[in-house]
Design a protein around this nucleic acid. Structure first.
Lengths: 106, 106
DNA sequence: TCCATATTTCCAGTAATATCGAAATATAAA
DNA sequence: TTTATATTTCGATATTACTGGAAATATGGA
């Protein structure tokens, strides 16, 4: 797995660091590979189309979701690879190689 | 492992969603259980004491680091348990129980 | 072509966040 | 008790983010 840069991680994190966007992302996580069209997300989370669109583009720029047009809908999906890279980055080189605190903390 | 609430996750994520704070956090991750005094962090990342303090308190409020006074220094440590909870929350109930996309994406 | 549906872009107002010097606080050493 | 060190709080300013209605764009169906 390739490693990411710090500012890439910041973008991903700030994409997720907002109630609405986190809710959108988690909905997409649950939807899995199938994903969800924007309209479905708007309906399930009860938000105005313009707000949703604003947040979706933020999530996309942050690299944590992808989009694909399907007819007049646009399907959004969580990017699981990106998430795994982000998590690896957060705990990179942890604990100076000692008995690993993250692992023990589980 | 207990589960966290959405707004707890947002606080943790926005704590990490900033270049300086992410750098501080990753430094603390590398330091492991030992942690680092604020002054050491300031020196290694070359930032003004007031800025560092602002960011440290943000990280603390976000629950991703803890602090402990030691003489006139204050030792900061990454909270690995909190991180594990956060990561679990992000991928909660993924993929409707199908073959799991996050696992495959590794 | 003309209309309906799905989504995005634009805009302006409002709110939240980042910065860092100076002053304040807490602890330890002389 | 005076002085030095470590860190935080205050305050003013600058920047960035959030919101949602209205208009624009893209697609598909009649």
């Amino acid at each position: 797995m390739e490693t990411i840069r710090s500012h890439t991680a910041v973008h991903a994190l700030s994409a997720l660091a907002q109630e609405h966007r986190l809710a959108i992302f988690r909905l997409l996580v649950q939807a899995g590979r199938t994903g969800l069209p924007a309209g479905q997300i708007a309906k399930q989370l009860d938000m105005p189309a313009s707000s949703l669109s604003f947040h979706l583009s933020h999530l996309k720029k942050g690299g944590v979701v992808s989009d694909e047009r399907d007819g007049r809908s646009i399907i959004y999906r969580a990017d699981f690879q990106a998430m795994n890279r982000l998590m690896a980055f957060l705990l990179e080189n942890c604990c100076e190689g000692d008995a690993c605190a993250p692992a023990d903390a589980k």
